[in-house]
Each structure stands twice: as C-alpha cells, then as structure tokens.
Design a protein around this nucleic acid. Structure first.
Length: 475
RNA sequence: GCCUUCUUAGCUCAGUUGGUUAGAGCAGUAGACUGUUAAUCUAUUGGUCCUAGGUUCGAGUCCUAGAGAAGGCGCCA
C-alpha cells in the first residue's frame, strides 16, 4: 500500500480507486451517529483531504479523541466524493491516533484568528492555511532565487556572519562576545577573537572580494540589525540576497535586478497557484471591511502578473525630485516632509507617491546625491551624484538597494577620508582596487520584503517563521 | 526612539452621560442527528474588565504612572 502526501493524491488521479495510507493533522471533525468526516491536512498543499468514517467500523471512544490538531495515520480507499466541495475522499478502514490534542488547550481553532494572536503562538501557526501557504511560497521564492543565479552561472558564496568590520554604516550592530559581561574593566583583547566583533549587517564588502575573482557571485544569508525599528517593514534578523558582478555597470545592474524580480515572481505564479489563490481570497475578505480607497486596485495574482509583464520605469533622482516638487501633494503641503531642496533623501511618502500615484509601476531611481549615499558607491561625472539605484515597489517600498561600486582607488580613498571610514580597517577591501581593479556592481534584496509583496501580507513579521524584533525573541 | 490608538471569557468582539448580579458568537462540556464542508439543533461551564495607584456614595467606563500590542514616522532591506 502506498504512503502518499495529500498534494499528490489531490492533483493526480493515480491513486483513484486504490488503497492508500496518509498521515497528517486534523483541521476539523464533523461527527454524527452513523458517519463522521475529518478534514486532514499534511502541509503539502493548502487543500485538505476529507476522511470518511463509517461509525459502525470504529469505536466511539477512538473517534471522540479526534479533535483539531490531533495527528492521525489513516488507511483506506480513495473514492469519488459524494459531497460537493471536493473531488476525492478517503473511506477509512484503519485509523491510528499518533498524537492527541486537548481541545481545551489547543489554541488553533477552525475559525479566523487575528495575525496578532497567531504571532503569539508562532510555534503553532504553520498549522494554519494562511501560514502554511506563506511558508510554501517563501520556499519557492528562495529556490527560484538560487535557480535564477545558478542558471546564469553565478556562484553562491557564504560571507561571514561574525565580522570584525563595523565600517559599513548600515546601522547598529549586535556585539558578539564570549567574555563575562558582569566583570568590570572588559578588554576585548581578552575576547575570543582578540578584538571586538559583531553580527554582520551586510555581506556586500566580502561579496565584492568574490566578484573580483569569480566574476559573478551572490550571497544569501542572514543579516542582523540592532536598530530600534518598530515598523511593519523591519526585522532585527532577516535574510538578504546580495549579487555582486565584475564588469557590470549601473545599467547592467538594473537589468539584472529587474530580470531577477520578474523571474522569481513568474516562478511563484507558475508553481504556487493554490496558495496564491488562497491568499488572494483572504485579502479580498479582509478588504471587505475597508473603505474603497484603502483596497488594492487589483487582486493579488493580477498585481503579480502585471509586474512580470511591464517594464520597470527608470528615473534619475533629479527627475524624480522635480516630479515630486511639482506634484499636487507637495504644492498643497500634504507631504509631511516638503520637497524643496535638491539633495534631500526621499521619505516613504515620496517613494509611495512615485510608485503608486505617478508611475503606477515599479520604479528604479538612479544617480542619487553623493552626500546621502555610502562611501563605496561610484562617483558620477557631475561630481554631485553617485551611481546608486533603488528599486521601489508598491506597498513595500524599497525592495532593492544597489550601486555601481567605486573601482578607482584614488576616488575611493578620498571618499573614505571625507566620510571618516578607516582605510586601515578596510585595507583588505582596498587591495581589490590596488590589484587588478575592474568596473563592478551589485545590489541587496531583502527576502522578507519580496515575500511580503508576493503574498500580500501587511506585516513583515508574518512572512518569516520566527520573527525577531525589538523586545521579541521567542521560540 | 517619536506620535496616535488599543488592552473586557480560550478566540473574535459588544458594553449608553460613571449606577443593580458584565453580555454575544465561536471554541469547550453533555446530549440529539443517515453525507457533513468553520456541519446543524438543544442545554451548559467559563471573567484579576492589562497592572498599580487615585477621584467618587459608586469605576469596565474618569485621572496618573507602568506594561504589552497595533498603525504611522524615522533608520533601512
């Protein structure tokens, strides 16, 4: 007898009419005198398998012990369903309870729970349709990213998680130590690495070393930021993809970013239709209680399809600045931060206006003022801007930040001096410019922000299995 | 970190200008039911109204402080 996962049973007909065995967790049970129904899910798909129990064949005591959350192993015959909501059902002839679930204690009920409540039981939320869908889609996104780069000949390199570099300026870092912090007069020379070290905030500088040897590389690793950020778009621990390519200028960099995002979204559209449909319906139901203006103009799957079909808009910082300065909300004083002086950094409200109101399309903004960007970005001819690029998406905002890197040693060291970045600490980085430097580019993609966009989830804490945020590190 | 709002049963929520013994649906429990679909029907258990002070004859409701959460903002991916 075949032991099979529910996904295979439901999408192929190969088991129809035969004896099979399945295992999974009970979603609901509907019990009556002569016949009972169990909705069984094993996480392989958002869809569940209906199990039919003829009550003449089973002890009442056994069936009474089956509740939401109970794990079961069942053998039976797969037949055409007499009910309306499913094509197949399993007529059970053997049933074994693997693990009981006390219905008075089990927090997941067969009803709608708030995401806030499910965050408090994050260890059990993968048992819900919503979160199992999200985590299956998250897997497909991860897999598609690796496949995209592998198919293009990129090499995946692991950049360090513990780092002695703190010159990247990407935010507050978590310190890593094996010292007893209760002791006074701590000297980091006595610490494990004989110096202070941190958790990484970016693999970029290390990835550049790889690119300047293997030409095209990418990192895909955890990233840690100790910023006290309390928003629906920030995590203290998240996953970042950072491709880094030798012989790519800023235009090649933009082309790659756009191609990658479209590839990944297409991949998910092609393979996760059931999960996307489920999330789309969830979103529609949520939006019913919202005023029209707060609802999405297009349903989830259509939003994703549009991304893959249309070319991203590309605009220089200066042009975007002029669009914003001349925009209605700016003239009417609707922006909290007025757009009046060239050189300001765009705020969330400005990015959202560009993407959602002006272009109504993903936008890549390039050539930002040098003063608001990092030291390693390549200076443009105008001596005012750098070859930076930010990919802005609807709802989630900045999904990618990247640049062409400054490959000219004299220009790079000049910027480091101006911005007080230690040349001594980064001498290994400068060596790439001393020995066979080349034009190169790269960018960073926040995995969770992409998952957020693709699943339509409003809060980033709901697209990572175990979210870490200020004051919150459980499980 | 800042601003705003919220915290009532296991969950989702109602609770009037401060006024008897704080309610509903779902879940749970007991029973009924020949095919259900978050099954249905009957009965029923369940409360530190976030915490600590205060005002008042009287506080779920008003005030102060604290804790936690959500949304927005900043920092960024």
């Amino acid at each position: 007898m075949d032991k099979e996962r529910i996904k295979i049973i439901l999408i192929t007909e190969k088991h129809f009419g035969s004896e099979i065995s399945v295992s999974g967790w009970v979603r609901t049970k509907r019990q009556s005198k002569n016949v009972s129904f169990i909705t069984l899910n094993d996480g392989s798909t958002v869809n569940s398998l209906q199990i039919v129990l003829d009550m003449n064949d089973f002890d009442l005591e056994l069936v009474d012990d089956i509740n939401s959350g109970t794990s079961l192993s069942i053998s039976g015959k797969l037949v055409k369903s007499e009910g309306k909501n499913q094509d197949f059902e399993l007529i059970a002839n053997e049933l074994k309870i693997l693990g009981k679930s006390d219905p008075e204690e089990y927090p997941i009920q067969p009803k709608r729970h708030s995401f806030e409540f499910l965050r408090e039981v994050a260890h059990l939320r993968p048992r819900t349709n919503t979160f199992s869908s999200i985590f299956r889609i998250r897997h497909s996104i991860i897999f598609a990213i690796h496949k995209f780069f592998n198919d293009k000949g990129f090499y995946n390199i692991h950049t360090p998680i513990i780092t002695s570099s703190d010159a990247e300026g990407a935010g507050e870092m978590f310190k890593v130590t094996s010292l007893d912090l209760d002791k006074k007069n701590i000297d980091f020379k006595d610490d494990f690495f004989s110096k202070p070290v941190n958790l990484t905030v970016s693999g970029q500088l290390n990835a550049e070393l790889g690119a300047l040897a293997l030409s095209e590389v990418y990192t895909f690793g955890p990233t840690f930021r100790a910023e006290n950020s309390n928003t629906s778009k920030h995590l203290s621990e998240f996953w970042m993809i950072e491709p880094e390519m030798a012989f790519y200028d800023i235009n090649d960099n933009m082309d790659l970013a756009e191609e990658m995002l479209k590839y990944v979204i297409r991949y998910v559209l092609d393979r996760c239709n059931d999960d996307l449909l489920f999330l789309e319906n969830l979103e529609k139901n949520e939006e019913k209680s919202l005023p029209q203006i707060q609802r999405n103009e297009y349903a989830l799957i259509e939003r994703l399809s549009k991304i893959t079909e249309n070319t991203f808009d590309r605009v220089s910082y200066t042009d975007a600045f002029n669009i914003l300065r001349n925009s209605k909300p700016n003239k009417k004083g609707k922006f909290k931060f007025k757009v009046d002086e060239w050189g300001i950094d765009f705020q969330s409200e400005h990015e959202r206006y560009l993407v959602e109101k002006h272009f109504k399309n993903p936008v890549i903004v390039i050539d930002y003022p040098r003063e608001i960007k990092a030291f390693y970005m390549r200076s443009n001819e105008d001596n005012k801007t750098v070859a930076a690029m930010d990919v802005l998406f609807p709802t989630v905002g900045e999904i990618i930040g990247g640049s062409q890197r400054e490959e000219r040693l004299d220009m790079l060291t000049k910027r480091m001096d101006e911005m007080n970045v230690s040349k001594k600490d980064l001498s290994w980085y400068l060596d790439t410019r001393r020995f066979g430097t080349v034009v190169h580019s790269g960018f960073g993609l926040g995995l969770e922000r992409l998952v957020q966009f693709i699943t339509g989830m409003k809060n980033i804490r709901d697209v990572i299995p175990f979210p870490r945020t200020p004051g919150n590190c459980n499980y």
